[in-house]
Write a protein that binds this DNA or RNA. Structure first.
Ligand SMILES: [Zn+2]
Ligand SMILES: [Zn+2]
Ligand SMILES: [Zn+2]
Ligand SMILES: [Zn+2]
Lengths: 137, 137
DNA sequence: GCGGCAAGTGTAATAACATAACATATCACG
DNA sequence: CGTGATATGTTATGTTATTACACTTGCCGC
């Protein structure tokens, strides 16, 4: 099993199924990947997955990776990560490393303050190769 | 006119048309937006646009905004921007501000070095409201 | 000039990602 | 109960991106 999060108990059936699929995956899944994994559980339409994903992302239990059009479960055990989150995505094995960096966050805040830009959401995704994949190359 | 770049002369016809469309737009354009603007010039298929965009992005003359699935012309007059580029995208008016920040770049490099992660490409996109749109709200 | 190759182009078909619209169900709460 | 808010099921559709194949163009060496 990729992760062993304690899944919140107040999720609806579909939300629970979708989060379960993400938690059991080593790498990001597209909405259609998730749908395929959950057909056995009765899901039939993309919208069922997208709706669940919307809620999960809204609650910070999952994240959307814009550069992949795919989703991952939040790596934070207690799902309380605040502020800017960055993702390092390995092109070799597909693994994603989620991290926060307060220096970067502060720096961005500084830029935004100077420009009068009101930040609502930030996407930060690094593509490359993880240590294992570099070694294997 | 939104921009007044000197367009490089060694572009092919389709590349020139696509870059022209981007340069004349105030905000990012999807590939299909571009296609619609260029039908009068004889373009008919998405692939013609995507192929041109690939080359333009490769040369740094245009950038892809992952969180919008859209493209902008590079804002740097001489198209020599190095390293990490960040984009602040206004949800109100659609305008995009392109900037570089060496502190953030260095910080990311530091993280990558510590993790043994080999960075190939970084996406950084801030969504929010620009000063004008905040004032207008 | 001409064969051969690389890069670019044209076109159709299809795949992959995402949402609109509408009907029904479920549950909290007064 | 009645009513509203939230979730669900289903079909159809819209949007973004790629595959496959045929043809053209410019260039280099012969
Ligand atoms: Zn997280
Ligand atoms: Zn890897
Ligand atoms: Zn640029
Ligand atoms: Zn604005």
């Amino acid at each position: 099993m990729a992760h062993s999060h304690d899944v919140p108990t107040d999720l609806t059936r579909n939300q629970g199924l979708v989060l379960g699929a993400l938690n059991h995956s080593e790498s990001p899944l597209s909405a259609y990947d998730i749908l395929d994994k959950l057909r056995a559980d009765g899901l039939r339409a993309p919208l069922q997955v997208y709706r669940a994903l919307d809620k999960l992302v809204e609650r910070g239990l999952a994240h959307r990776l814009e550069s992949l059009n795919a989703f991952v479960a939040c790596a934070d055990e207690h799902c309380h990560r605040k502020g800017l989150i960055a993702f390092a995505i390995c092109e070799g094995c597909g693994k994603v490393d989620e991290f926060a960096d307060s220096v970067i966050e502060e720096r961005l805040g500084h830029w935004a303050g100077a420009k009068g830009f009101k930040v609502e959401r930030t996407t930060m995704e690094i593509r490359g190769k993880c240590e294992a994949c570099v070694a294997a190359a």
